[in-house]
Amino acid sequence: MSLLDRITVNPQQCGGRPCIRGMRIRVSDILDLLGAGVEVEEILADHPDLEREDVYAALTWAARYVDHPRLSA
């Protein structure tokens, strides 16, 4: 399983936003916490269903998303 396989998108869940392994924990939630300076260990302690690889998957997804070229007319 690659890290990005941990990211799921379901139009019926969380408004179709990317989530972690089908749970209602959005990638953006993880990124917001990291951006606010919350340590990975604290995120994992506060969300016992998360695994360390889920946090890495969120970071990998974000890196790929921002590196995606966008064309505009």
Rank of each mutant, 00 (worst) to 15 (best):
M1Y: 11
S2P: 12
S2A: 14
L3Q: 01
L3M: 05
L3C: 05
L4S: 14
L4K: 01
D5S: 05
T8G: 00
T8S: 15
V9Y: 00
P11N: 04
P11V: 02
Q12K: 06
G16Y: 00
G16D: 05
R17Q: 03
C19H: 02
C19A: 02
M23R: 10
R24S: 12
V27L: 01
V27S: 00
V27H: 03
S28W: 00
D29R: 04
D29E: 15
D29A: 03
I30W: 00
I30C: 00
L31K: 03
D32M: 13
L33C: 09
L33K: 13
L34S: 02
G37D: 14
V38K: 13
V38Q: 15
E39Y: 09
A45M: 15
A45Y: 14
D46L: 13
P48M: 10
P48G: 07
P48E: 15
D49I: 06
D49F: 10
D49C: 14
L50R: 10
L50D: 07
L50F: 08
E51I: 07
R52D: 15
R52M: 09
R52N: 06
E53C: 09
D54H: 04
Y56C: 13
A57P: 05
W61D: 06
A62R: 08
A63L: 14
R64S: 10
R64W: 08
Y65F: 13
Y65T: 05
Y65C: 04
Y65M: 14
Y65D: 14
V66N: 01
D67W: 05
H68T: 11
P69Y: 00
P69V: 04
P69R: 06
P69D: 10
P69I: 02
S72L: 11
A73S: 05
